[in-house]
C-alpha cells in the first residue's frame, strides 16, 4: 500500500518550476528521496505537508489531499526540518512537550511523551538543558524527538545527518533505522548522501530537475542485468586483462590492481577455476574475487546523468 500517491504534481516559484509534473507512488516503509541539490526534494516535502499549493496536479498522503487537508495531514505527519530550528527560551523537555500540546495532546500526556521520546533519541539528562546550549548533534536529536512526540504515522526527515560527526551520524542513522524498522513508522528520508540512504531505506525515489527519474527497492536497483565479477590482483596485469577479454569478458572498471569484468553470459565452467587458469596463463596472482553489485551511488549517477 502506498503512503503517498502523487499524480502530475507541478509546483512553481514564480517562473521557476521546482517540481515538474511528478507522478510517483511512495510505498510503505523507509523510502529515500534522492537527488542533487535543487532537484525539488525539499519542495516536494513542503508540498506534501500542505505548506505550498501545487500549481497543477494532485497528491494524497495517508489518504488526505495535500492541497486541501493540510491540518489533517500534519496531525499524522512529523517533520524533522533540514535547517537548525528551535523555540528560544525553552529546555528540550518543555520544547518537545509544547510541540506535543500543539499537536493536540493533553499537557500531562505531552510531558510524558516528551520524556519518552527524548530518552529514545538518546538525550538522557541533557533534556533539561536550555536548547541554546546544545551542540549540532543534540539539536538534530531534539528535532527528531519533536517530530515523533505526537505519534505520527509518517515521518519526513530532511537531511537528518546534516552537520553531524561520524559518531553522531551513526547514532542518528541507527535511530532512523529503528524508527522505521522496529517501531513500524513510515519514513521518507530526503538526502543526497548515498550511504545514509543505503543504510536506512528499503526503497528510493530519485529526482532530477523536479522529475522522478528512477524508483524501486534498493535491492532491485542495485541488481545487474549481466554478471559482473570484481578481481583483485597482487599487481596490475595487462596480460590478465587481455586474457579475460579473450575469454569473452568486458572490462568495466580498472583501478590499480582492482578489475571489474562483465560476462554477458555466466561462464560455463566454475568461475574460480576459470580465473585461476587465466591467472596462471598470464603470470598474475589473484588476491581475491567476488561477484560484483552496483552501489547505490552507481544507480544514482546513472539516473541523474
Amino acid at each position: 500500500m502506498a503512503v503517498a500517491t502523487i499524480s502530475g504534481l507541478t509546483v512553481r516559484y514564480g517562473n521557476k518550476t521546482a517540481v515538474d509534473g511528478l507522478t510517483v507512488e511512495i510505498p510503505e516503509g523507509c523510502v529515500g528521496l534522492l537527488g542533487p541539490n535543487g532537484a525539488g526534494k525539499t519542495t516536494l516535502l513542503k508540498t506534501l505537508l500542505g505548506f505550498l499549493k501545487p500549481t497543477s496536479g494532485s497528491g494524497e498522503v495517508l489518504g488526505y489531499n495535500v492541497a486541501t487537508d493540510g491540518l489533517k495531514l500534519r496531525q499524522k505527519i512529523g517533520l524533522m526540518p533540514e535547517i537548525d530550528c528551535h523555540i528560544p527560551g525553552m529546555n528540550a523537555v518543555t520544547f518537545v512537550a509544547y510541540c506535543g500540546e500543539m499537536s493536540g495532546m493533553p499537557a500531562a500526556q505531552a510531558l510524558r511523551r516528551a520524556h519518552e521520546t527524548l530518552q529514545y533519541c538518546r538525550l538522557g539528562e541533557a533534556r533539561y538543558r536550555d536548547l541554546e546550549t546544545y551542540s549540532t548533534g543534540m539539536k538534530q536529536k531534539v528535532k527528531l524527538a519533536q517530530a515523533l512526540v505526537h505519534g505520527p504515522k509518517l515521518l519526513f526527515l530532511d537531511e537528518p545527518t546534516n552537520g553531524l560527526d561520524p559518531d553522531g551520524r551513526d547514532e542518528m542513522l541507527n535511530l532512523v533505522r529503528d524508527v522505521s524498522h522496529a517501531k513500524g513508522l513510515n519514513v521518507i528520508v530526503s538526502s543526497h548522501l548515498m550511504p545514509d540512504i543505503e543504510r536506512t531505506c528499503d526503497s528510493v525515489v530519485v529526482m532530477r530537475s523536479g522529475k522522478m527519474v528512477r524508483q524501486g527497492s534498493i535491492t532491485e536497483l542495485r541488481a545487474l542485468d549481466a554478471v559482473q565479477w570484481s578481481v583483485d590482483l597482487r599487481t596490475p596485469s595487462p596480460q590478465f586483462q587481455a586474457a579475460m577479454e579473450a575469454e569473452g569478458a568486458t572490462l568495466i572498471t580498472n583501478a590499480g590492481s582492482h578489475y571489474r569484468f562483465e560476462f554477458k553470459k555466466s561462464p560455463t565452467e566454475d568461475i574460480g577455476s576459470l580465473l585461476f587458469a587465466i591467472a596462471i596463463r598470464s603470470n598474475a596472482q589473484i588476491r581475491g574475487f567476488e561477484r560484483a553489485s552496483r552501489s547505490l551511488e552507481d544507480v544514482f549517477m546513472e539516473a541523474i546523468s
Binding site: 493536540g104 493533553p106 505519534g151 513500524g184
Partner: peptide, 26 residues
C-alpha cells in the same frame, strides 16, 4: 526507573479549536 521504550501515541487529543490557547499560555 522509567519505561524508556518508544511507543506510538494513540491517546486522546484536544480540540483543534483551542490550540492557539496552548501557544498563548506558553
Amino acid at each position: 526507573i522509567a519505561d524508556l521504550s518508544y511507543r506510538n501515541y494513540d491517546g486522546p487529543l484536544n480540540s483543534r479549536a483551542i490550540r492557539w490557547w496552548t501557544i498563548a499560555l506558553a
